[in-house]
Nucleic acid binder design. Structure first.
Lengths: 239, 239
DNA sequence: AGCCTAACGGCACTCAGTGCCGCTAGCAAG
DNA sequence: CTTGCTAGCGGCACTGAGTGCCGTTAGGCT
């Protein structure tokens, strides 16, 4: 270590909204690198701030807590999900819409694989970070549940609240399962197809009743390909 | 405030295992009362320890963290669930067994209603405690998933891991939904019946495939009479 | 009585998180 | 160019959670 000046920016980077996002990303990147290199607990907020060339106090202007820096993009994902729901065709099956919305989470993980893998390694090792991730998942699970409840209530479902909560939990669980499997494999393989198969299981289980009193029974072997399953169920629903 | 001696126990309460449990309960009770009276953040660990007549350092010998004191009995519940699974009849439907096991959570909430209501009020208002509760739920959800996965693998299910995770999430969500509704009503009403109804929805959705190679997917309205369901399913199975 | 162990209390320390204040870069109006 | 004005930053000081260490003491055992 030479005596470091470490005061980089000639122009104030956080002065403009674009600069704010830039510094936010820089802080997050610095934090992840330090966590991966030295461990989470061993890395202090001072270290992160110094690595990003800012003061410790500034870090807390960009993140409420040390562990928030690992889930920096989560708020944006939730916002995108809300938009997706607002723009969704009301005629579509609510569970399918919800599954499509959580696909945004998959996209965001795939968009920054390096971050995703490092974060995955951390959440598996550090208990407090695992809890934080669980809480993060719970947040968008609640968004799912709120959407589903509204749709079920539109359909006159008496148990809309319960069904929505259960379906949202199932969707989130399926999503997490696919995500973890994919991350364990180092981010290789077709995550979209895997997700579609997992969601099919949930969709089949929680498809909302069509019309008022329709009863649909479909019989399938386990070997039935997915598209066949969907086709058969849809066929049965119509007939 | 008079000059308080506040050193109560003539006999060392924590010296014996029975005494340890006693002090643990005393600390938890003191903490909950203080949280309810003054708020969670406003209550320091010093306050809790002083109220229980012990030193601050002792508190951390009984609980790893301040928020752990609110979920003191959680470990015991998880242990009971594991026992329940170990003793369960393998012939029973795994999802039903799992639902019965989470019933233990309901029991523990009903067993100490005062604690449950105060904790509920806290988890609704304090974000960090809500996250802590979510993490707590996730822990027994994992226990459920592990049991279900083993049972599904016994049945030769290829997607045992996924199905187990999804079913566990659904069961936990149903349980939480019933629990929260009950707590919101102040702990009045028949929680067991409500839970049974909620679990019925999950069991219907995730019933394991009967027989060897037949998978039956049924989508039904809640209003469908049972004999009709049976007839339709049998009909579908035959042809 | 004398030891041995387990639990407690207190002290000191690190670090997360917060409030406060002074500073400065940039912008706008004169 | 100068004079405010504002937004963001750095630093300081403080609280409180959580931890390591050590001296002390109660209770059991021989």
């Amino acid at each position: 270590m030479t005596d470091s000046p470490r005061r980089a920016p000639a122009t104030r980077v956080g002065a403009t909204p674009a600069g704010r996002r830039q510094l936010r990303r820089a802080l997050a990147a610095a934090a992840v690198d330090l966590f991966a290199a030295n461990g989470y607990e061993a890395t202090t907020v001072d270290d992160i701030a110094a690595a990003a060339g800012v003061g410790r106090r500034t870090f807390f202007r960009y993140f409420d807590a040390k562990d928030d820096v690992l889930f920096a993009n989560h708020d944006e994902i939730v916002a995108e999900m809300e938009e997706e729901f607002a723009a969704a065709d009301p005629a579509r099956d609510p569970v399918e819409v919800a599954c499509a919305a959580v696909g945004l989470v998959l996209d965001s993980y795939a968009a920054d694989l390096d971050l995703s893998l490092k974060r995955f390694a951390l959440t598996r090792t550090v208990p407090s970070l695992r809890d934080k991730e669980v809480a993060t998942v719970d947040r968008y699970q609640r968004v799912l549940a709120r959407y589903l409840q509204a749709r079920y209530e539109d359909q006159g479902d008496e148990t809309a609240s319960l069904r929505a909560a259960v379906a949202a939990a199932a969707i989130a669980a399926a999503n997490n399962h696919v995500l973890r499997r994919w991350l364990r494999a180092g981010g290789t393989g077709d995550i979209k197809t895997a997700a579609a198969e997992a969601f099919a299981l949930v969709v089949d289980a929680f498809r909302a009743p069509r019309g008022d009193e329709a009863t649909v029974v479909a019989v399938l072997t386990t070997a039935t390909p997915l598209h066949e399953v969907v086709a058969r169920v849809g066929e049965a629903l119509r007939g």
